[in-house]
Design a protein around this nucleic acid. Sequence first.
DNA 1: ACAATCGATGTAATAACATAACACCAACAT
DNA 2: ATGTTGGTGTTATGTTATTACATCGATTGT
Lengths: 134, 134
Amino acid sequence: MSAPLNLTKNQALVFDALTRAEGPMSAYTILDKLRDHGFRAPLQVYRALEKLLELGLVHRLESLNSFVACSHTAEACCRHHGTVAFAICESCGQVSEFHDHAIDERLASFARLKGFKAEKTTIELRGLCSACAG
Amino acid sequence: MSAPLNLTKNQALVFDALTRAEGPMSAYTILDKLRDHGFRAPLQVYRALEKLLELGLVHRLESLNSFVACSHTAEACCRHHGTVAFAICESCGQVSEFHDHAIDERLASFARLKGFKAEKTTIELRGLCSACAG
DNA sequence: ACAATCGATGTAATAACATAACACCAACAT
DNA sequence: ATGTTGGTGTTATGTTATTACATCGATTGT
């Protein structure tokens, strides 16, 4: 486990916490998990997250105000896959990350048509995963 | 103008405020606009919003923690158009609402494949509108 | 070496967003 | 007339995020 890149101590701690969690966590939940490691204030978490988001190691779930480790952190990461979309189970909290080129195309096409310059795209499905839907 | 349906006084006030605004507003901003009309607490706003969201007269922008009036409130409203997507200008705050059947299909197809039962879908583009991008 | 700069950090305070808990009241059906 | 439902008002609290300010260490140009 641990630090895949040139992460600082705080960044690595936050990343590890998220990776272990196997599910989304709020910044404050992360903070609580890291109190033993010397974290005292939200800003320590938010600053680390900011960097991790920038690196694409972590994603923010807007509809949950929380954060997940990127599921493709094996080697290459998400920047290579186009827009990231999430399916979030309301029941068990499981998040699955996916990419769909056709959707990217449609969004790009809309943007082209309207002259809209998209910087960031959010796609999130809330519902029930197959296990929970039964 | 004004109450299109059987809205209560508070619901109508919130809806009017959002309609006039021609842009997204946070619940607290709405609260401030309605102080003159007797609003005193956030809950009054949130309760009205809850109903308006349910009726499809208003949308929540997850990436902004704020709310907009549905742009199709002429007659029929958004429930008839499938998933609603938003292009949000970071510069001028303008929001344009759109619908894309092909995207709906791709998302439905993903859901089918994974056995995911989607209850609610969020699609938001953040960026610059044509006017602001220049 | 020296200062300058840059990025990360620590801490406290506060802002912004959202809900819980409780009481009250009007409309309406049984 | 009583119970139920849905809206309301109020206070308090919980949750998420940022601002402001001080410090520290590494790097770099001179």
